[in-house]
Nucleic acid binder design. Structure first.
Lengths: 121, 121
DNA sequence: CTAAAATGTAAGATATTCTTACCAGATGTA
DNA sequence: TACATCTGGTAAGAATATCTTACATTTTAG
């Protein structure tokens, strides 16, 4: 039936993909930075190719995310509802104070947009 | 002379070996725990075989050392010191998925730019 | 010194990764 | 709409790495 191809559990790949997109990079750009071909990056993200420790290290630097997070090591963690929430929270810690302030306003605006007139039980 | 065998820069292997000895484990024991053959562990430590991200993760747990240390990362520190960070995280958890997506883009835009290279094969 | 345990290494078998190419979806433009 | 471009997924044979077993060397303990 299945002849030797193994799908990996993946979560690292998914996180790497999330992180790449957040960094605003294409697979091709990342491939160039790592000295890989684009399909390799694609396979890594889909869990069809393993990431070596060195590659992982470089990717974390490029995306500016922590090794622990990418590998799924439980860190304090905020809330487990949406996987992207974790990432977003992590990204927040990298903003400078001014940006963080602006962001708080953006968040506030988003919320009042939607539930204007709601009372919060 | 040398036909296609590549020696890796290694430092990860050296650290893993160091960590293993500190943990008081033999290569054989570690190999069993990881479901590998002993020679594979030997090759990893000597830098003749790559360590995958998952293997690295498990090894770090077994040896009780941090990922950052093993890969030689300058002890990175994300400081959760800023009280506003917590507030922002709390706010994030209240957003709906769409807003969260939009927010991720806002954050990405805020991030001072990364390099841009070119792309597709 | 000897025995046992641990580690290093060789070689063919097996599996993964690379490389190139092509395809489809998305996006922007005239 | 039609067209060009960018992006990401995947296939297939070639290239390379890893596995597995066996044996050699080193280390440790008695």
């Amino acid at each position: 039936m299945n002849d030797s191809i193994q799908k990996r559990s993946n979560s690292i790949g998914v996180r790497l993909k999330e992180a790449r997109k957040l960094a605003g990079l294409s697979q091709g750009q990342v491939a160039n930075m790592l000295g890989l071909h684009r399909p390799s990056v694609s396979e890594i993200e889909s869990g069809n190719r393993r990431v070596s420790a060195e590659e992982l290290h470089r990717l974390c630097d490029i995306y500016d995310v922590s090794l622990d997070w990418v590998v799924g090591k439980a860190s304090g963690s905020i809330s487990p509802d949406d996987p992207r929430l974790e990432l977003a929270a992590r990204e927040l810690s990298k903003l400078n104070p001014d940006d963080l302030n602006r962001l708080l306003h953006v968040i506030a605006a988003m919320r009042s947009d939607k539930d204007s007139g709601e009372g919060n039980t």
